[in-house]
Design a binder for these strands. Structure first.
Lengths: 309, 309
DNA sequence: CGAGGCTATAACGTGACGCTATGGTCCATC
DNA sequence: GATGGACCATAGCGTCACGTTATAGCCTCG
């Protein structure tokens, strides 16, 4: 009674949250898609979406159906591959932030692609979107700095990354081996826009320490932030694992808490072959970045660079 | 393009290997089923069955499709349950021999049904059919005396069971603590029909020892065999774990190799929740039956009896 | 307040699917 | 070796489901 077409249609509908656009993507008329989604909901006996104003959004059940639909679609495609070429060619999707890919996951990703059991699909997302991608089944695995437990997700600790202050080598603070928060009094900082987790962490820590500061530039992502530091616009607090542009130095800021990066996955998802392999490699290649040391940086010189296309 | 109906139809077709009968079971006309199977094969690009004489049999690809079809159907039903009642009510299927259920798996099965996470479906099969049921996805797990590796199957050692001679208490051999093979010279044995593994093992062992014997009755299953021993028709070599009828005694036969019972599962099958739980319980409740001791028998008196309906 | 964009329903045509009927093939039985 | 039976496979036909275009209803923004 259930049609796989309905599930397929529902996944792309859920990605667009629009009948009109999803229908175009499916090369189908909008009414046709509408009735397919309607039949799917009727068959399952639950409403799949609700109208909130002019926007559509998935119901809780709709999100479950989305996970199920993605799973069924992947299983079908994987099986067709197995039938034809003997093994699945379906990509395993890994979601993480851009910086995470650049500085943390290089060796693991290289090892996985070298084994080449299956294509790897990298989804560059911010923290919330990474969690959402894993939860909705868009990504099989995610890597992100999560603390505490997330409902429905299983998290495996990967590594801890200390926070450092990135400054020009000529900057007065560069003479110190270690930075205290009150050293930043009055500093012009390059920070992410309000609402981003890193911005929130910096704001909270400096507020607790009673340090006043001002934003120099708001930039998203470690690379742009460091770029502006190199331009002399200001200084920035970044992950210890970031690769610094020429002329910049990093000094640890021990008062800032280390961020714990973890591999996350859906608790109820079966760990299928290639996904399990990727998770294994991610955990196996984990290296701690408690503090940035030249030795560590020299030991794997092309690690971050290898991720640049 | 793939219809779940086709997969559903294919599973019952594969169980009947007959369009006529499968169509009846599906409340469908024979031609309708025929074209469904035809479309499934055409869509996948592989022939699903071949005619061997008047019998139909699945091709290798057809067997793979059967596994896939069963998996998809189970996943769909499980999801509908999860959507409606919050957790899967789909049964987990366990295949084993009748004697295995009676004497080996009682506590584990009781523990699983007590937890009652999902219904348990017991499939009583002989050795080959147990392996086939697991391989084809009809059963999620199997328990059987397998030695060595089976391709595509993962086996986890469960327990070892010694062989004993079951005889009336008044029998001359009952005065011995232990039986040697040459004690059986000229004996009238109750054995399974030719071709069954137990028959083969007995025949081979006695042949190697140069012992001549004659079959008294051919009976299938430990219970019938012991029944005939109780009737005085002959004596029998049975598993040490068998529960003996009143008036019979068992004496170990050390020269016969112990049989190793294992939990078997498809290597490429994901260990989903309830199946994993059942496997855990099976392994946790494993007890060795190296030799039949009264202490062990008294320690769990209703274990075999609990499995009788 | 009107235009634009989107959802939802209506009306209609085509194609897919199931049914009955029947030919073809293999095997059992005599 | 012939005959009947069981069953697979195909043909022809009718019905229903699905997709299309047309259009009404609704929300939002200029």
């Amino acid at each position: 009674m259930l049609h796989l077409d309905w599930l397929e249609a529902f996944t792309v509908f859920a990605e667009h949250l629009s009948f009109t656009h999803a229908a175009k993507a499916l090369h189908l008329s909008q009414p046709a898609l509408h009735v397919q989604i309607g039949k799917l909901g009727a068959e399952l006996g639950v409403p799949l979406y609700v109208r909130r104003g002019q926007r559509l959004e998935l119901t809780r059940d709709g999100q479950r159906v989305l996970v199920f639909a993605r799973e069924m679609g992947q299983r079908e495609r994987a099986f067709r591959d197995e039938l034809r070429v003997g093994e699945s060619l379906q990509p395993v999707a890994l979601a993480a932030g851009e910086g995470t890919f650049l500085y943390l996951l290089g060796p693991a990703i290289r090892a996985f692609t070298a084994a080449a059991r299956a294509p790897l699909r990298l989804l560059t997302r911010d923290l919330d979107a990474t969690l959402a991608a894993v939860r909705s089944g868009e990504a099989h695995l995610g890597v992100a700095p999560v603390d505490g437990a997330a409902p429905g997700l299983t998290i495996d600790r990967l590594t801890e990354v200390a926070q450092v202050l990135a400054i020009p080598a000529a900057h007065p603070l560069a003479r110190r081996r270690s930075i205290k928060l009150h050293d930043l009094e009055g500093a012009r900082l390059i920070v992410p826009p309000p609402g981003r987790p890193h911005r929130a962490a910096i704001t909270a820590a400096l507020l607790r320490a009673g340090v006043t500061w001002e934003p120099a530039v708001e930039a998203t992502g470690w690379e742009p932030m460091l770029h502006f530091v190199a331009l002399g616009v200001g200084i920035a607090i970044v992950n210890a694992c970031c690769r610094l542009p020429r002329g910049l130095v990093a000094r640890p800021v021990p008062e800032l808490p280390r961020r714990t990066y973890s591999v996350i996955r859906r608790s109820d998802a079966a760990l299928e072959g290639a996904t399990s392999e990727l998770r294994r490699l991610l955990l196996a290649h984990a290296t701690d970045w408690r503090s940035r040391s030249r030795k560590a940086a020299r030991a794997r010189p092309e690690q971050p660079a290898s991720e640049r296309r």
